[in-house]
């Protein structure tokens, strides 16, 4: 996940640079054909796209600004050139509904397309009751379907994948669902249940000072060592970005203390590149006899808050 973001930025920057080259080529074409008045706009827009590419690479958390710059460049060029194109305007006008979908999120793209459709149809110079209007509207309706499908797949994955996106642990939703079912199971089978709360105080600081990689190293180390120290049916879940719950079914208090001890011993020799020795705060939470799910859950949340405030 952490590596995916820079490559996406790189790919977008590459696409913007390709767009800039295309516009520069278009300007050169006008120069060769002697249309000196039409050179200025594509040249300026090519520069705008270069700016967009640079922005995309340097300002990582604002991908919308270069996208809007590119959209403006595309719209301006199309609006200026359509009246000159005569018969082939019916080809190039098709760019208008596609650009927002490629560059903007779904809702703004839909809105922009709906608002701009009459303007583009008028600019294309074809009769409004002809086939062109219908096929333009069809294109406008069909293009966003790709974004809808992307959205559906992403939401579906979030709703069905119990694991955390960053590390080998359950996500918060997955953890709570799993813990609730484990609570029922131990109750039905009259077994004890223990939860080990593990707080990593360095996580927040690591991502602020050393970036994503240091944070990832912390999370990976913890998940690896914990899974080495636990049984197959114990499970680790990420309750908050820096706090994990290790659920230990059928484990008495002394057994859980043993696990805690083992994890501490395993983490003790760990020294990470950026953050140094790995520090943890740990605490045990045992289900009390006859305790209800709501009470245990509340107690766990309270306990986690106190541990994080330490």
């Amino acid at each position: 996940m952490a590596d995916g973001i820079p490559t996406t930025a790189g790919r977008f920057a590459l696409a913007y640079v390709a767009g800039a080259l295309l516009l520069a080529g278009y300007a050169a074409w006008h120069y060769l054909m002697g249309h000196y008045a039409r050179i200025l706009l594509p040249t300026l827009l090519a520069l705008l796209l270069v700016v967009a590419a640079v922005l995309r690479l340097t300002v990582a958390n604002r991908p919308r600004i270069p996208a809007y710059l590119t959209l403006i460049a595309g719209y301006l060029l199309l609006a200026m050139e359509l009246p000159w194109l005569e018969t082939s305007a019916s080809l190039w006008v098709g760019l208008a509904p596609v650009l927002p979908v490629l560059l903007l999120p779904l809702a703004p793209a839909l809105l922009l397309n709906a608002v701009m459709a009459p303007a583009w149809l008028l600019l294309s110079g074809e009769p409004l009751d002809g086939d062109l209007t219908l096929s333009y509207l069809a294109a406008m309706t069909l293009v966003p379907l790709a974004l809808w499908e992307q959205r559906r797949q992403r939401a579906l994955l979030l709703a069905t994948d119990p694991r955390d996106a960053d590390c080998q642990a359950l996500s918060r939703e997955g953890l709570h669902a799993h813990l609730a079912s484990e609570f029922q199971r131990t109750e039905l089978l009259h077994q004890p249940l223990a939860i080990l709360v593990i707080h990593l105080p360095q996580v927040e600081m690591a991502s602020e000072q050393f970036g994503n990689r240091a944070r990832q190293a912390l999370l990976d180390t913890l998940c690896r060592e914990v899974s080495r120290c636990s049984r197959r049916h114990d499970f680790l879940g990420r309750q908050t970005p820096a706090t994990f719950w290790l659920v230990l079914p059928d484990t008495s208090e002394s057994g859980a203390q043993l696990v805690q001890q083992r994890i501490l011993q395993a983490l003790e020799p760990v020294v990470l590149l950026d953050t140094g020795p790995l520090r943890t705060h740990m605490g045990l939470c045992q289900r009390l006899p006859g305790e209800s799910w709501q009470r245990l859950h509340r107690r766990l949340l309270e306990f986690t808050r106190r541990l994080e405030a330490q």
Binding site: L91, G94, P97, V98, D131, A139, L142, L145, A146, L147
Partner: peptide
Amino acid sequence: ERYALWLWLWPATLLLP
């Protein structure tokens, strides 16, 4: 000649998962 403008639908098909 009738559907020239749909040439630009191709990027959308590439966008599909």
